[in-house]
Design a protein around this nucleic acid. Structure first.
Length: 810
DNA sequence: TTATAATGTCATGTT
DNA sequence: CTAACATGACATTAT
């Protein structure tokens, strides 16, 4: 041990780690005779799953829960579940730094996107929000409900159009639940058909998608960078993760780790922030930026660097967004109060964002007269308690479209039609104002629960015509939206983010490579033993390296107490043994000099109490002479692990020697039963000897079995961990896909809705007058034609069906 | 000295 | 039935 200590000082370890980090492979193992597989891990990077902490955590909790594949029963099932939970919890423990970097990475692109989106586009904002939900579920949770409905910020619509007709925005925003319900509107087949039939305009369906892809790509790219630091940390961490012989190095390296854990504190803090929500982060930055009293003291400096970093890229977003609100909150309030205020603000904001999409069609009855004020900073309304701001926006899109492109640009924002994005703010308003009254009335009577269905469901006899057609798509959409919500909830529950999953991927990779080692490492003692024993069994004179090493071990000092214990144990086991042993120890030195007695070579154990130091002197030459090839290796590994090795062969070896068993324990244990019996037959052994031999064989086999069992258990745990991570990756991927689909569906709904209104607004009756949307709706005819029908003709059952669906959603 | 991880041992069940 | 193996529970050892 001292030998190793001497060379593996902290500095050396650091150096090796450094080398490993830069890709230089330092194979110390070869120099250490592969006695310490951990060294390889230390240098080349450990298996995170194999760290001591983890293992023992698992093991402690797993005791009694075998994971043996054969026992596939309830116990196994529950044990597996426990394991999974354990693994997950472990995962969480590991994640902090990961999560932090993930957040940072994710936040920047997202903020950029959302910043762009918030200014004028609903969909971009939606993307941002969705991504945020995916990757930062806690954040969503913090915002209450967290289910992000499409945000159409500047328009300030409320989704609750039907229920809250005429109700002002604040009320809407308070009703988060209704948002959820209302967002589950259905894209019916009629709607699709409507698109096919009526919509021939060139709308870039992929625009929104592109935005999404962009952000996601950004995120992935960024995330790719994340694993590095974490892996590094693992690499350091892994040094702790070894056992016994290597623990010394582990400790030394631990000092390093401590150095890093110092950093981990801020990371955890930052992670805390990241988990709360992105909005929270913005709040943080806001606090720092807005309040001159410099609450940075309240927020550890360790946090602020990470937090500030992204802030530089999005000052316009958060500050510009919220700063107008902040003055309202009193700076004199204590920090807690300020936080509460800000959280409240953020909630409002989120709700607004969520409600924006559908609210665009909701235009309130108060009429959008103040739009002009909104445009410069539409988001100002978010924080304002007064209902008016949102109402102002109401009629934005209700105007009879002078041109489709204009309306679409208004509705879908820059993503859908980037060309018009610039125009929307300016050109929109006049148009809207002119028609505001009409529009308001129109939408006042319209069921806006759905983005585009409202007309169909609310006002027309459509249901009679093609009620069945709605169902498939309705249910589909419903399902999609609900799933989205549930998935988000799920994600929130797990505290699981996409970026996190990506890192898990990397972790998994590293683990997979290391798991092999891990399986070997614990078995290394046993494997060496078995290999030795097998070889020894073939040649009787050969000595197991393990045993010979013991001989090299100069344990004369501690051997005495051990012997005493041993004797006590033996005595309890078989009383006469103790006497025997004591007597036999006298003869140990003699035994050792008898070459034909294999025991001699292995069991230096004997040197113990009675054997003098000179006896030990004899042993070493004996051993080295037998295994010259291994001498160097032994020299290297024997010294550090002498205790370990001594322990391995002590008891039964000693007993056997004491009983003068004429063959090695290796043979006793590993010979096939026939050969074993032959061996017993060859020698005339006493009952005591036979009993001891049988016990040695039984114990020896059981020892190996136990080692195998533990190894299997560990492998099982590792495999489960891998499975969990794999499942997580899949889940993340599916979640991502789902979000994408939901987003696409949402966009489709918006388009259908706008198309619907466009068509309806362009229609003129015989007198050239437009059909008020409040009184008329488009319906499918039985033959697929589109009819303008008075809403009064819509049968009651349609509404009932609609309500039923909504209840179902609830 | 105590805590904890690693290993050994036993009892029991399974193959 | 025996031998071998597997495994939970406990004991011992090592650090």
């Amino acid at each position: 041990m001292l030998y190793l200590k001497k060379y593996f000082t902290e500095g050396l370890i650091q150096f090796t780690i450094l080398l490993s980090l830069i890709g230089v492979r330092v194979d110390v193992d070869t120099y250490l005779s592969s006695q310490f597989p951990p060294l390889r891990e230390i240098i080349l990077g450990p298996s995170s799953a194999y760290t001591q902490t983890q293992f023992h955590n698992l093991r402690n909790t797993l005791d009694g829960y075998g994971i043996h594949p054969k026992s596939v029963d309830l116990d196994y099932f529950f044990a597996s579940r426990r394991l999974l939970n354990q693994v997950r919890s472990l995962d969480h423990l590991r994640v902090p730094t990961t999560e932090l970097s993930t957040w940072l990475v994710h936040r920047d692109p997202e903020s950029v996107v959302s910043a762009a989106g918030q200014s004028s586009s609903s969909i971009a904002l939606d993307n941002g929000a969705s991504l945020e939900d995916v990757s930062n579920p806690e954040g969503s949770a913090m915002r209450g409900g967290g289910t992000s409905v499409d945000g159409l910020p500047e328009s300030g619509y409320s989704l609750n159009g039907e229920e809250t007709l005429g109700a002002v925005a604040p009320q809407d925003s308070q009703d988060q639940g209704s948002h959820l319900e209302d967002c589950n509107d259905d894209l019916t087949k009629e709607d699709i058909d409507l698109i096919d039939i009526l919509w021939r305009q060139d709308i870039d369906l992929g625009a929104g998608r592109e935005v999404f892809d962009y952000s996601s790509r950004q995120k992935e790219n960024e995330v790719d960078k994340c694993p590095l630091p974490e892996q590094n940390e693992q690499g350091v961490d892994g040094q702790e993760s070894w056992r016994n012989g290597v623990n010394r190095q582990g400790r030394q390296s631990h000092t390093q780790v401590d150095g890093e854990t110092g950093e981990s504190i801020p990371e955890e803090l930052a992670d805390l922030g990241a988990q709360t929500s992105l909005s929270l982060q913005e709040c943080l930055r806001l606090l720092e930026a807005t309040f001159p009293f410099g609450d940075e003291s309240e927020f550890p400096d360790t946090v602020s660097p990470e937090l500030r970093e992204p802030s530089s890229e999005e000052p316009s977003t958060s500050q510009g967004l919220l700063s107008p609100l902040l003055p309202q909150s009193e700076p004199s309030l204590d920090l807690e109060q300020q936080w509460q205020d800000i959280m409240a603000i953020m909630e409002l904001q989120d709700m607004e964002v969520n409600s924006t999409a559908d609210s665009s069609f909701l235009s309130d009855s108060t009429g959008g007269t103040n739009n002009s004020g909104m445009e410069p900073n539409p988001l100002v309304t978010f924080g304002l308690p007064s209902p008016t701001p949102i109402n102002q926006d109401v009629s934005l899109h209700q105007a009879t479209l002078p041109s489709c492109s204009q309306e679409f640009s208004t509705l879908f924002g820059p993503e859908l039609d980037p060309r018009t994005s610039m125009e929307t703010s300016g050109s929109q308003q006049p148009t809207l104002h002119s028609n505001s009254s009409n529009i308001n009335s129109t939408f006042g009577g319209t069921n806006l629960t759905g983005l585009f269905l409202p007309p169909l469901l609310n006002g027309t006899s459509n249901s009679t015509c093609t009620p069945m057609l709605q169902d498939p798509l309705n249910s589909l959409l419903e399902e999609a939206m609900l799933d989205e919500i549930s998935l988000l909830d799920l994600a929130m529950e797990e505290g699981f983010s996409q970026a996190q999953a990506f890192q898990l991927e990397d972790e998994l990779d590293s683990d997979s490579g290391l798991s092999l080692d891990s399986s070997q490492s614990p078995a290394s003692p046993s494997s060496s033993e078995t290999s030795c024993s097998s070889s020894s069994s073939s040649s009787s004179s050969s000595t197991c390296a393990t045993f010979s090493e013991e001989g090299a071990v100069g344990y004369s000092t501690d051997s005495e107490p051990v012997l005493e214990q041993e004797e006590g144990a033996v005595g309890g086991y078989q009383p006469e043994y103790s006497k025997f042993c004591r007597m036999s120890y006298q003869d140990l030195s003699q035994f050792q000099h008898l070459p034909q007695l294999e025991n001699i070579s292995h069991n230096h154990t004997y040197n113990l109490p009675l054997s003098s130091s000179s006896d030990n002197e004899h042993l070493k030459p004996l051993n080295t002479g037998k295994k010259p090839g291994r001498d160097k290796q032994q020299q290297a590994k024997v010294q550090p692990s002498q205790d370990f090795l001594e322990k391995q062969s002590s008891r039964d070896e000693r007993r056997a020697r004491a009983m003068k068993i004429p063959f090695s324990n290796d043979k006793i244990i590993n010979l096939p039963v026939e050969e074993f019996n032959e061996l017993l037959a060859k020698h005339h052994l006493s009952e005591a000897q036979l009993a001891l031999i049988r016990d040695i064989r039984r114990r020896g086999k059981n020892k190996m079995a136990a080692q195998n069992c533990r190894k299997r258990k560990l492998d099982t745990i590792l495999n489960l961990e891998q499975d969990v991570e794999e499942l997580r990756r899949n889940k993340t991927r599916l979640l991502k896909e789902k979000m994408e689909y939901v987003r696409s569906i949402r966009q489709m709904k918006q388009k259908v809705h706008s198309l619907y209104h466009e068509v309806l607004n362009q229609l003129r009756d015989e007198d050239g007058r437009p059909y008020p949307a409040s009184e008329y709706s488009l319906q499918y005819g039985p033959d697929g034609s589109v009819l303008v029908m008075p809403r009064s003709l819509v049968p009651e059952q349609t509404r009932k069906a609609d309500k039923k669906q909504k209840d179902k959603k609830k």
